[in-house]
Design a protein around this nucleic acid. Structure first.
Length: 448
DNA sequence: AAAAAAT
């Protein structure tokens, strides 16, 4: 990777667990090293690499400094945002710069990525033009709905602005173009709308956002569809890639497919979320895991909990068994009808359901503030049976949002799964302690 | 293995 022409700047932050809203940044000027490159002090948390050395490198401390359109600033404040989060301080000036620049950004779960790219889309959209100009891709139906809500809320002071949901089940009449200026959707439907069905003219897209970008461009993820969509976009389309995780090979691929990107990157050792306490429970079988879960059901329903299973089948089984024991739970997996999925996630958001049994469909992005416990009923593994560190981080990131405390409990039921857990510990250099599910004091202490 | 499609 050529870094010659890059300017670098750095944020210093000692206390990673400190609440984001109270963070005080210490700006540091880029320091040339022996080669004349601008280099980073390795003790720092965030690396910012700006492609164009001529454009001044800066971060903002307030939304006013961004000179947003009044109706957008109004939308930002109406959502209750007072000042930019850490990622927003650095990413917003880059995303709003003229001419538009591409960005690949990595930032922890719950640090305000969504609001950042929504703001970027809204600042570029021209509501008077009745055709899609901004396109955002999400990996799942539920996340597309959630992000769509943020777009609608933040854009509600634009009287003419409309949002289209390109998701399963949203069937439109053939042979017409859509007039909505912003489109949020999942890869399959968006691809259909752009190619076969021609509801969208991809050549008119000005801003393209990939949320959970690593899984969107990973070979094992949505790569084919996302890249096919990307290739239909105009050359000067601004591309914004966001995720909490970028595994090495995916990171390289991202830089290959995104021309001249600015980069905001979190340092590896700062990845694990210090606000989340992690434990494991030792069992001998799936049934023992089930009984252990029954034991702690009372403690985890003080707030809300998400229980992750490896397969849809296990999730369905577990939800049914818990119900039989008299424990109320909701089930969400990709085999369900989209209408049902929308209803379940809505009930969970409203707090009408305390426990959601689910698959990796909910591993990423889903933001329900009252979730204080994440349970890995099955540890996350990839198709080869190796630990899936990225998914682990995303799953436990469903709790501890915006600096709140959280609890993650991993259920181990064999030598094999103990081995998986050990490798996850090693990857994050983070000790995961054993928890006795008969001793509820510890759990209640943290969930309170 | 899950998710993503008007296949």
């Amino acid at each position: 990777m050529a870094t010659d022409s890059w300017a670098l700047a750095v944020d210093e932050q000692e206390a990673a667990a400190e609440s984001l809203s109270t963070l005080q940044l210490k700006e540091e000027k880029a320091k040339p090293d022996a080669n004349g490159d601008n280099l980073v002090d390795t003790t720092n948390q965030v690396e910012v690499l700006q492609r164009d050395p001529n454009s001044p490198l800066y971060s903002v401390k307030s939304f006013e400094e961004l000179h947003l359109k009044p109706q957008l600033l109004q939308g930002v404040y109406a959502m209750g945002f007072n000042r930019p989060s850490k990622i927003q301080e650095n990413a917003l000036p880059m995303m709003l710069a003229e001419p538009p620049q591409n960005l690949i950004a990595q930032s922890q779960s719950g640090t305000g990525k969504t609001a950042a790219f929504v703001l970027a889309m809204l600042s570029r959209v021209e509501p008077g033009n009745k055709y899609p100009q901004c396109l955002c891709l999400s990996p799942t139906y539920e996340l597309a709905l959630q992000t769509g809500k943020v777009i609608e809320q933040m854009g509600k002071f634009y009287p003419e602005l409309k949002l289209a949901y390109a998701v399963r089940g949203n069937k439109l009449e053939r042979g017409q173009k859509i007039s909505e200026q912003i489109v949020i959707g999942t890869p399959g439907t968006v691809l259909d709308w752009c190619s076969k069905l021609k509801f969208i003219d991809p050549k008119k897209i000005k801003v393209f956002v990939l949320d959970e970008a690593d899984v969107m461009i990973a070979t094992q993820g949505h790569q084919d569809q996302s890249i096919r969509i990307q290739r239909m976009l105009p050359r000067d389309c601004q591309m914004l890639l966001f995720s909490a995780t970028f595994e090495d090979s995916v990171w390289k691929f991202a830089q290959k497919v995104v021309p001249d990107p600015n980069i905001i990157k979190l340092k590896r050792e700062e990845e694990t979320l210090d606000t989340i306490k992690q434990y494991y429970v030792l069992c001998n079988s799936r049934d023992e895991k089930f009984r252990a879960l029954c034991n702690i059901y009372g403690a985890i329903t003080i707030a809300q909990a998400m229980v992750f299973c490896h397969t849809r089948k296990t999730a369905g089984w577990l939800a049914a068994e818990l119900s039989k024991e008299g424990h109320q739970v909701a089930l969400l997996s990709g085999e369900m009808m989209v209408e049902q999925r929308a209803a379940v996630i809505e009930r969970f958001r409203e707090g009408k359901e305390k426990v959601l049994v689910t698959t990796n469909v909910c591993a990423r992005g889903i933001d329900v503030e009252q979730v204080s416990v994440v349970i890995n009923f099955d540890l996350p593994v990839d198709k080869d049976g190796n630990p899936d560190n990225e998914t682990y981080l995303h799953r436990i990131g469903r709790t501890g949002r915006f600096g709140k405390r959280g609890l993650a409990i991993n259920m181990v039921d064999s030598k094999h799964s103990m081995n998986i857990l050990n490798r996850i510990q090693e990857h994050f250099s983070k000790k995961i302690n054993r928890l006795d599910t008969d001793d509820l004091d510890e759990i209640e202490k943290i969930t309170n």
